[in-house]
Design a protein around this nucleic acid. Structure first.
Lengths: 235, 235
DNA sequence: CCTTTATTTAAACAAACGTTTGTATTATAT
DNA sequence: ATATAATACAAACGTTTGTTTAAATAAAGG
């Protein structure tokens, strides 16, 4: 047996991290235990030993990510917080969450799209938790989640916006920095990448822009909806 | 050999439709050719015969969906169209596209998230086509896609918003209409579903709300961004 | 009607899948 | 030092995978 190499994390976390990276790139179903084991430098039986199997890794990733995401939502303020500040806290927390946990966050959001029998109950449970934790905030800004049209626009709005950004950033981060070949419009994203740093200054401005977009949009849109469709009252 | 049953569509379209439904529910990698063949009532070798293999079905789905999506974007107006009207046309077209092609649209958006070797070039190509077809519109509303922060918020904003709605709607459409058991907060979505019709009236109001949210948000947010960060000028 | 082409089928193939098993090795407790 | 518990390993297992092959059947063309 190979002696332990103390410069590596423990096998369990190596498996977790290797799997997260592979799942975010290829999706859960496309990644096999042999590939994970190779990436984590472990024997494949260790996946069953530490996680009870492949699905066990996914479950561990989802539960860790969701606990953090939920915490990000819940700590954005309460009903005494002014709504714009609460929106800003929320976006700031969610961005922080994605920055610190990009891979498991993306795995979680993307896994929720598909019917994976062993984790479908998590999808339903987390949908309801989102509903419950964000309810106070929506009431503050004039959004009625019991109205299906409001629900369709606003439920998950900010989470999905931030997720989309990090998904695109993840692609960009993995692109080669230098592309040999013609320097034309096709290379626009690569050129853009070379000049780009996803640093605090970037995210300060990103958060500001997103919050303004959201907050000023929602004020006007919900009032216009109320006037135009005589909707918006609690039932 | 079973005689042709003329009440069914041609085998090729049966395979396409069965695969689209399965892919949207479970994801491409989790669906096998035997499952598709069974659902389509064909022999598995026919998947190779008609589509060259499993990936060929996916490619056919993606190409059909993207051609339509691109057309929806491109036909929303041109640079002489007032920007709010153009935004409304765009959202209306995209919603129309999703309503008429829900499954292939969702398959397309969700497949783009993962590295599937045979279709990765499509992802890059379509990212650039989106960039090109939407450029005029963004200029009209004060969004500079060459600014990475603007890009991060606005590139794909409306497409992703509408996609998220249809993704959630797809889950809701597949939920049992009646849940036996306790009638409590856990059943909120089911009760909501019973009262709900995704009819033209729903989408009229949905589009209105989304366009107002977007349009009024973007006007304010880009102006605030310009003032606060001294940004926004073309370079 | 006969020939050619197109479509469908059942069987086979090689590879891959996630899990299990028994053993070896290492770590811990006394 | 010995016994027990924990960890790691290689091999095996039964099943599944997408593709291919050869033959049968149906459809089209002359």
């Amino acid at each position: 047996m190979t002696p332990k190499n103390y410069s590596l994390p423990e096998p369990k976390s190596r498996i977790f991290n290797a799997a997260a990276a592979l799942f975010v790139n290829k999706g859960f179903e496309a990644v096999g235990v042999r590939e994970i084991a190779k990436e984590a430098k472990v024997n494949i039986a260790m996946i069953n030993y530490y996680f009870g199997g492949k699905v066990g890794i996914l479950r561990a990733i989802l539960e860790e990510a969701y606990q953090k995401y939920h915490q990000a939502q819940a700590s954005a303020g309460d009903d005494s917080t002014p709504p714009e500040e609460r929106a800003r806290n929320l976006v700031n927390n969610v961005v922080r969450f994605f920055r610190d946990n990009t891979e498991i966050a993306l795995v979680t959001f993307n896994t929720m799209l598909f019917d994976i029998p062993e984790i479908m109950s998590l999808r339903e449970k987390w949908g309801q938790m989102n509903f419950a934790v964000m309810g106070g905030f929506f009431s503050q800004i004039g959004v009625d989640l019991k109205d299906p049209v409001h629900n369709s626009v606003y439920n998950g709005f900010l989470g999905n916006m931030v997720k989309s950004h990090f998904q695109l950033r993840y692609f960009v981060d993995r692109m080669p920095a230098v592309v040999t070949g013609e320097n034309g419009p096709e290379n626009r994203e690569t050129n853009w990448k070379e000049q780009l740093s996803f640093d605090d200054a970037f995210y300060d401005r990103y958060i500001d822009l997103l919050v303004q977009q959201y907050f000023h949009g929602v004020i006007y849109a919900t009032q216009n909806d109320k006037m135009k469709y005589n909707r918006g009252e609690n039932k």
